[in-house]
């Protein structure tokens, strides 16, 4: 009984507004003391083995590893989505569509596993946690309806393409840039195919290709993660990806 009370009072202490200014002020005092201190702080974040910062947010990390983790997160999301589609196919899928999702499910699982292997070998200890079923939120998708599944597939594939297109400039290792290129064109082929399933001829329409330049979309990591976040329960922080 007394223990519980004590805990409750401790929590109440932490909740007091007074604490926040003090902590923040001391943080700034240290962070602002020297540039070196800031660098130390940042490098400390980089070396976090599980990439989880105190409030439960998963940091994708920085530099090339950050980009790889970012791609790994997106590929995990796609792979989990297609695995679910494959496990519970919509009743109004045609045989061809069922076959499509079965093939794409394999591709995305392979991409996911590729990044897992690459990060574990190349940057041991820096990989983000696995995004399991409990970490994902597919409640907005009606897996029993073809239209809902196709619309989500289109969203994920277009988002994936835009993500790779926007992240390429952050990769410092040439080999990674080539690998990203090897994957993004397959994602773009998926996107084109699923778009044509929804509406034949929409594979590269003005909603995704800039009609002034003929260029596909590119998005910054933080914007991509913001778009993907409704499908992922754990909060992802992409603010240092590529930096």
């Amino acid at each position: 009984m007394s223990n519980i009370k004590q805990n409750a009072s401790e929590e109440a202490e932490f909740a007091k507004p007074l604490y926040t200014p003090i902590k923040r002020r001391s943080f700034f005092m240290y962070a602002g003391a020297t540039a070196g201190a800031t660098a130390l702080l940042l490098s400390g974040c980089d070396d976090d083995n599980d990439n989880v910062v105190p409030n439960g947010t998963v940091s994708l990390g920085s530099g090339d590893v950050g980009v790889l983790n970012y791609a790994y997160a997106l590929e995990q999301l796609e792979a989990a989505f297609y695995a679910q589609v494959k496990a519970t196919p919509a009743a109004d899928f045609s045989a061809v569509e069922k076959d499509y999702f079965s093939q794409v499910a394999a591709h995305e699982a392979i991409h996911r596993d590729f990044f897992k292997a690459a990060i574990n070998r190349d940057a041991p200890g820096k990989i983000i946690p696995t995004l399991g079923a409990a970490d994902l939120n597919f409640t907005s998708i009606d897996f029993t309806k073809r239209a809902s599944v196709l619309a989500t597939a289109k969203t994920f594939e277009d988002l994936g393409v835009a993500a790779y297109n926007g992240a390429g400039k952050y990769l410092k290792t040439p080999a990674y840039l080539v690998i990203a290129g090897q994957i993004v064109s397959v994602e773009a082929r998926h996107a084109a195919y699923v778009r044509d399933l929804i509406s034949n001829g929409s594979f590269a329409d003005d909603s995704i290709i800039d009609p002034a330049t003929g260029l596909d979309k590119a998005m910054e990591p933080v914007d991509v993660i913001a778009a993907a976040q409704p499908f992922i329960k754990v909060k992802l922080d992409a603010s240092n990806v590529g930096k």
Binding site: V186, Y193, F203, A204
Partner: peptide, 24 residues
């Protein structure tokens, strides 16, 4: 060149969309 890198990447994925459609 960051601009040109992104321009090529964005062309590359558009080309892949085209290729997929022609195959379809």
């Amino acid at each position: 060149d960051i601009y040109l890198t992104e321009t090529l990447l964005r062309t590359h994925s558009a080309e892949a969309r085209h290729a997929a459609h022609l195959r379809t």
